[in-house]
């Protein structure tokens, strides 16, 4: 039986690219996204390329929805080998004192709490299997910080520390937990706000001379599911063209 990968935020951008990569490698991919139509689109693309995929809806900030999702996936496939928590985003760019409490919580919950809720539901399944790979998503801003993105930077730094703690908790069961930290990446959501040309000008200091593509990140997520990464846990993998070297 092929490996089963559950990918939150799999409906587009980096999550969509990760879904495509894992499906092309023979995994059964469950695309879970807030935007069901987007998840369905990626599912259709994977299916027409000969891959196996399901599209399910989830709001990762809602305990009840996350529980229902994981029960659904477990009942369909009986196992979860890979959990990739890619749902999230910065949502706002504004000064700290302009954030309302509700907005602050929205950003923290979509990124950090959503990661916790998904891990809490999936970890027991992996513990029973005595195997599993959990891939969380941070950001270079989780290390450097970013003006006008205080809650996002805090949430991403939180994910890095959460990953290390969870890696230590789950290591005895042979479960690996790592974080992928994208740098500036040309996702459709980002390109709606800024053209690729403008972004390349803004990011002209990137040593490799270009912004990232979702596929660049997908390769790292995939690598962290393979036997080649069997001795790696609790680490943060920056994929950013060299713009941040922590």
């Amino acid at each position: 039986m092929s490996q089963v990968a559950l990918i939150s935020g799999g409906g587009g951008g980096i999550g969509g690219a990760a879904a495509h990569k894992m499906a092309a490698a023979g995994m059964t991919v469950v695309i879970a996204d807030f935007d069901h139509a987007a998840a369905e689109t990626v599912r259709g693309e994977i299916a027409s390329a000969g891959g196996k995929a399901d599209a399910l809806s989830v709001d990762v900030t809602q305990t009840r929805e996350v529980k229902a999702l994981v029960i659904d996936v477990a009942s369909r496939y009986g196992r979860i080998d890979v959990l990739a928590n890619i749902a999230g985003g910065s949502m706002y760019t504004k000064r700290m004192e302009e954030f309302t409490w509700a907005e602050w919580k929205q950003v923290i919950d979509a990124n950090l709490k959503g990661t916790f809720l998904m891990c809490r539901e999936v970890a027991p399944i992996m513990q029973k299997q005595k195997s599993g790979r959990i891939l969380n998503t941070a950001s270079n801003y989780g290390v450097t910080g970013s003006a006008l993105r205080t809650p996002y930077s805090a949430a991403k730094a939180g994910i890095i520390a959460f990953t290390k703690s969870l890696a230590l908790e789950l290591a005895p069961d042979g479960i690996l937990v790592n974080t992928v930290a994208p740098g500036p990446t040309d996702t459709p959501r980002v390109l709606e706000k800024e053209s690729a040309e403008a972004r390349n000008r803004r990011w002209s200091s990137i040593p490799l001379g270009r912004t990232g593509k979702p596929e660049d990140l997908a390769e790292m997520y995939y690598f962290l599911t393979t036997p080649e990464s069997a001795a790696i846990t609790g680490q943060t993998f920056h994929v950013n063209g060299g713009v941040v070297m922590p």
């Binding site: 790696i232 846990t233 680490q235 993998f237």
Partner: peptide
């Protein structure tokens, strides 16, 4: 191809 300047740890945690 998009990874440079990094030091990745491989150490069983």
């Amino acid at each position: 191809s998009y990874i440079t300047g990094q030091a990745y740890n491989v150490n069983c945690g």
